[in-house]
Design a protein around this nucleic acid. Structure first.
Lengths: 255, 255
DNA sequence: CGGGAATTTGAGCTTTCTCAAGATAGGTGG
DNA sequence: CCACCTATCTTGAGAAAGCTCAAATTCCCG
């Protein structure tokens, strides 16, 4: 156990995420919070999980920023997901023993774990929790499909815009972005690895977005000046981030 | 029910798939086979499932060839998965009500369904079956990640080679390919939509592969003349198709 | 304050795209 | 069985998007 995480500042994004999960009782929430152990902080570039590692439990990102990635033998790297606070590192552990991809911290990243056994017993005794966890893997899948669309079909400026919109909404959802402002502790080279573009081209594309008055950047601080317009440029629609939510739920019409 | 599907030729690929699933008992297998109802055949280009459709049950592809895809408002299309006989159309139905993407037949495609209620009761009463179904969604995810790597990092000739290797192995696994020969009832334009390449470039790339003596094509019949070499060109490793299998399991060293 | 990493910009080049036209093939009605 | 029709495939030519290489600048960390 990590002590009284429920009231602990560091677990706030995770708490927000849990609160957003469909129909989770307070009891379910504290059950999962109380199961968290072994908090640790990884430095940027450190692997949280290596491909082919035997996975011994489920980790949750409490703070920081991480990515899943796959490498080609010649060193090319594709980032296949970004993990923001509140995201799970590998729910697959429930079914599968080994990872087929690596997870690395991009910023100093704090994670906590739930042992496989504890997780299995939680899932077996709490159907709503189980459902909620599967739901969150489905959101991850939906994001992955959208990334494939992004990389397969969109031009560079559309790709970058789309990713910025996605990350803004995801960070906003856990209280880490607001008013168009977000911190992205990733290098341009890492953005390139996520979007299938070269570092140089990421740089030029960001410059173009700045030139169009859509974006301001200052180091790793990003300020989206006009989210609606950026979403239009990126052909971004937030639906995929809310798979399975009631489609009639009123949404801010910022897009 | 569909009658005695167990011995029915048409369900053979699905049976093979079930047999390959980890630790499934004969009892489990017949339980799921007996739950199949409502076989229907869709013509090429017909949607089996539309985005935003309420999903009423789980479909299995028994015969034919289909794809999942997402459309951009301007008509660009990304195919995010190919479904071969034995594949499930939408296991997400267990957790989610609506699809975030469409599924279309590419060849005449026969599917059968399991109602949501029946599926839920199967899953609740048969833990190994439940595990096996989740396992197959994880394989799908692994394929999706690999596709993202493919489109994000690989050059055209690598992409095409990689996809051909993948489809050959997947079809071989269900008895629909052998000796390097496979039928791909997809147009070059559809390959392009899957790989993020234009039709014209798919055509030239196939020509290049033929020129290198790696491939012969005749309409929709493909003959891989040298799988090991094609795999090398495509930087293809079959591991991702076997997520969670014992990594020590002897594998043919054709790659 | 120094040094390595990250960003920025330029220049030329490669891959892939678009547009356009001709060749083929498979399916349909007469 | 043939003729036609539409899809698909194939090839050419020029254009565009994005890449690589290289160098200069800036930023951040210690």
């Amino acid at each position: 156990m990590l002590g009284d995480l429920t009231s602990d500042f560091i677990a706030a994004p995770f708490m927000r995420r849990l609160n957003a999960l469909v129909g989770l009782s307070d009891d379910d929430k504290s059950a999962i919070l109380d199961s968290l152990t072994d908090a640790r902080t990884a430095r940027p570039r450190a692997d949280l999980l290596r491909a082919d590692d035997v996975i011994d439990g489920l980790s949750v990102v409490l703070e920081g920023f991480a990515c899943r990635y796959k490498l080609l033998p010649d060193g090319r790297r594709q980032i296949v997901a970004f993990l923001v606070p509140g995201d799970f590192c590998d729910l697959r552990v429930l079914v599968v023993e080994r990872a087929d991809h690596a997870v690395a911290a991009l910023a100093p990243t704090t994670t906590a774990s739930i042992t496989r056994d504890r997780l299995l017993s939680l899932v077996n005794t709490r159907p709503r929790l189980s459902r909620a966890l599967w739901w969150s893997t489905l959101v991850e899948d939906a994001i992955l499909r959208e990334w494939l669309v992004n990389v397969g079909q969109r031009a560079a400026i559309e790709r970058v815009s789309h990713l910025l919109c996605e990350l803004y909404l995801r960070l906003e959802a856990v209280g880490l972005a607001a008013d168009g402002r977000l911190e992205l502790p990733v290098t341009q080279s890492e953005l390139g690895d996520a979007l299938g573009l070269s570092t140089v081209h990421i740089n030029r594309t960001l410059r173009e977005l700045r030139g169009q008055g859509l974006l301001e950047t200052n180091g790793k601080s990003y300020f989206i000046r006009d989210l609606a317009r950026l979403a239009r440029v990126g052909i971004f629609s937030p639906d995929y981030l809310r798979v399975g939510r009631d489609l009639l739920e009123p949404r801010p019409d910022r897009y």
